[in-house]
Design a protein around this nucleic acid. Sequence first.
DNA 1: CGCTGCGCACTTT
DNA 2: AAAGTGCGCAGCG
Length: 584
Amino acid sequence: MSEIKYQDHILEAIDQLRRRKARPDADRIFNSLTRRHAIDFSDAKTALEKCVENGVVLKVEYKGNISYRNAAKKFSHLKRDSQGEIIRDPSKPNKNFTGLLTRAIAELVLLEPDYLELGVPGAELIKNILSKDSVRYTKKYVSILLDKEVESGSLIRMENGNFLVGPAKNDGQSRKFENENIKLSDLTGGNTHEIIFGGVKIKKKPGPKPGFKKAKSIDSFTLNGKLDNGKLRVGGRRKRAKKVFDPSDNNIPKKRGRPVGSLNKSTIEKQLAKLSDNDSRPESRSSNNSHKEQGGVCSVCHLQNKKGPTDRMIACRECSNKVNFYIHHLICQYSFPAHFSCLNGEDMMLRMYPDNTWQCPHCKTCVICYETSDAGYLAVCSICADAYHMGCHQPKIIDKIKLGSKWLCINCQMPEQLAVNDIQLGFSNIDALSKDHGDSMSPTSQFSGNSSPINFRSSPSPPSPTPPTLSPQAHLNGHGTSPAFSIKSESPSFKDLDLDENIDPSIPDASNWTYDEVYNYFAQYFPEEAKVFKEQEIDGPSLLLMKRIDVLTSLKLKLGPALKIYRHVVKLQVRRDDPKLYWL
DNA sequence: CGCTGCGCACTTT
DNA sequence: AAAGTGCGCAGCG
């Protein structure tokens, strides 16, 4: 079949319009051709007609108007050969293979969590697939099929050549990931939350993502085909969450098109202007408001005016600008601000974090299980302001903390020895600060907001919920990944922990290593990056105290190597090689 | 103002 | 019931 002039451009235009959910009508197609390829209107018209005649493009009527379809996509699922037999569209991925691929990626990601971020190396992927089915597939055939998956968009080839599961649905050629979900809990037996990786549901410990509000439902951690976390999205624009909170939760007429909750600022302001003044109405967002400091009624004292010239309004870091509610069917956005002076009082739930951020009582989450106070009473540490459910803290908290009395979490009760080690490493002034038991009343007074480069609250990596002075072992315990880890005494040491029986003798004991020995160990895997261990004078004892955040940020390494190095650090720390231990 | 993304109601398979 | 479609709106440059 000879190719019609501009055929590719026309098909591309149709595909793009479909992707945008815009009707691929003649006007839009012509417009696209003119804009992108400077094709003359009449030429475009002729070319489109030719394409229709030729059958490359289908002219259809849909909902009363004319649309054009990419014939290859429209009937790709039932293309027939000359005998009338249905033949497989070679451009469409093989469903069996897709399932195999999905399982392979899931398994590899489970074994090597870094693959979530780095992608799965092609060789690994092929090896895994062949190990499952070397009858139907050869190495070469697998790589061809991988290419097809990439073409179809269900697989993404990263710059480094590794693969990631792509958005499951990119157009009409949708891929039914949903039917091929694999529960990795079946593989791990873990008691964890569920994530969909591509279409693969992966059980994973939840962790609040930076800039990503943790909702109470597990779904908020779902990376589904539409990529709620936006991680793999190519385009830059992100849509605001449709509706976060609707106290009235009724009388909202279903409306076609945009939900009421996503009206823009000017629309809201216009609509609000129609309402009579009402004290219950929050201030409309002025142009110069900031994310965390803004006007509004203090959610603690319920007064709108400031209490003094230096008093400012602090908004909850979780729900700031994100909570929608309705007044007479109009969406309003509202945060739960509070006067600076109203925080850090007797009620620990109103305590600010050392980095000057604040979680309102509604959003405050247990640093172990990430559930809010809905799941039980939260005890809040007087120093680091981290919250724990009574059963989540180790040791368990017996009685609720009395109003006005102070309670320190296990990490803020750490011995001085650890503090000295951390300070020597120079990793974190937060670490050092939080050892200051003497001034538990004003943790914020010595802290300069977010200026520290090491800010464990705003780390781009899944933030470690563990407060600063945690030892590696306690750190792991904090992630709740291994019940075997438990703090038995006030002064935990490696010998106190239930580790011995699980030690892998092939993993060396680094506790007495010198700087050089540390360097040599890492140099065999990361000749370039290992130098940093020398520069930072990290010896064995220091290495055993390192936390994920230290490896990822303080060593100033690129993320990829840093993640790999972190895995080795954890291995050396626990002398085991269990993916669960460094899983996010 | 035009292009783009996308929720959701509607239509087709 | 599931998949396909595109209206109508918001965000953005």
